[in-house]
Amino acid sequence: MYSEKVMDHFQNPRNVGEIENASGVGTVGNAKCGDIMRMYLDIDDDGIIRDCKFKTFGCGAAVATSSMATELVKGKTVQEALEITNKAVMEALDGLPPVKVHCSLLAEEAIHAALWDYAQKHDIKIEGLEKPKSDISEEEDEEDY
């Protein structure tokens, strides 16, 4: 069902945990599947993401995308981090089954939420960042037979 990369990040998730006094923390959930992801960012004064940790209550794909997202985010600038899409996370994981695409959206949104929290706390405006939704579920476009 899952690619080897996904399985690797699921079995050995990178950066699990919390960051005390994090620069920004974002928690997002998907009401449809009930899963929750929390992302912690440690951002230095130059706007570089020094560290990133996560906690996730969710499926295998949710755990793997959380893990991969933290990896992708680390060392990036805030602006660069903002541009990490769920597609990028999926590609870095060699893809996800169609029914699991929304899990990667959770990761994208968790980054945004953490950045938003960082911006709020530090009273910064980050170009292109909108207030994240707390629930990222979308309409399924599957047909009903």
């Binding site: 399985m7 009930g34 209550f57 969710g58 499926c59 295998g60 949710a62």
Partner: peptide, 14 residues
Amino acid sequence: QFVEGESLLIMLDM
């Protein structure tokens, strides 16, 4: 409590 089913299943599978 606090555990999601699919993750549990995959780890059991391992």
